[in-house]
Amino acid sequence: MGYTVIIADLVASRRLPARAQFQRRLKTVLQGVNARAGRALASPYTLTLGDEFQAVYRDAATVFADLMSIQAQIAPVQARFALATGPLATTVNAAQAIGMDGPAFHRARALLERLKDERRLFGVQTTDAPDWTLPGGALAVLSGITEGWLPKRFEVFAGLLAGASRPELAKKTGITVRAVNKNIRAADLDEWKRILDEIARLLNEETKTR
């Protein structure tokens, strides 16, 4: 079967003050995502080399809610996320996302390097072709849009992607329903939710054919 692999790294991580302290914080954030994602993850978010972390999804339905949640919790530090689908050549490690290899990891690694060169935060690739045209283009645009977002907007978007109502979002983020609606309208978050939901559906469709 196919999987969706995430390989991510921190932007400008070498310039972080108290880097070791931040890595401990990131580890706690990833543990929280792992607990929420549950069986959607075939292999949990794991810190790997330096400031990189990775995970393997068997079901990508929650992947974008998870990524936005990570970004909300580590802001103002930014992370770069490369998503790729394909088979694995090794057994899935259900305990940690290490010691695995295969086309999905190769694509994600190559994409991450390209994202660094292009200074983008989100990318997706599902075949050996250079890009998965429409989803890849959408995430390239989203990379630019999110550059200026404050943590609260990432929080609102993560909750929206997870299916929370406006009152639930207000309670979770500590702002008013009016402020929630203002964030949604200002960044077209409803439209972006529809786009990311469709990309997640396509990722799952792709992995079922592998």
Rank of each mutant, 00 (worst) to 15 (best):
A129G: 13
F105T: 05
A110M: 01
P103R: 00
A108M: 06
A108F: 06
A129H: 15
D117G: 06
T126Y: 00
A110P: 00
L134I: 13
L142C: 04
D128V: 10
T127H: 12
G137I: 08
L139A: 09
D128T: 11
T127F: 10
F105W: 14
T133V: 13
G136S: 09
V124M: 10
G144A: 05
F105E: 04
A104V: 06
A108C: 08
D131Q: 15
L111I: 09
D128F: 11
A138M: 09
V124P: 05
P130K: 05
G137H: 10
L134N: 02
P135Q: 08
A108W: 04
L134E: 09
H106P: 01
T133W: 09
R114G: 10
F122Y: 15
V141E: 06
E113T: 03
H106E: 13
R114H: 11
P130E: 08
R107Q: 14
P103C: 07
R114Y: 03
A138P: 00
A108L: 05
H106C: 04
A129V: 13
E118K: 12
A138E: 05
V124H: 06
E113N: 09
A129L: 15
G136I: 07
Q125D: 11
A138T: 12
R119K: 14
G144K: 01
V124A: 10
L121H: 11
V124K: 06
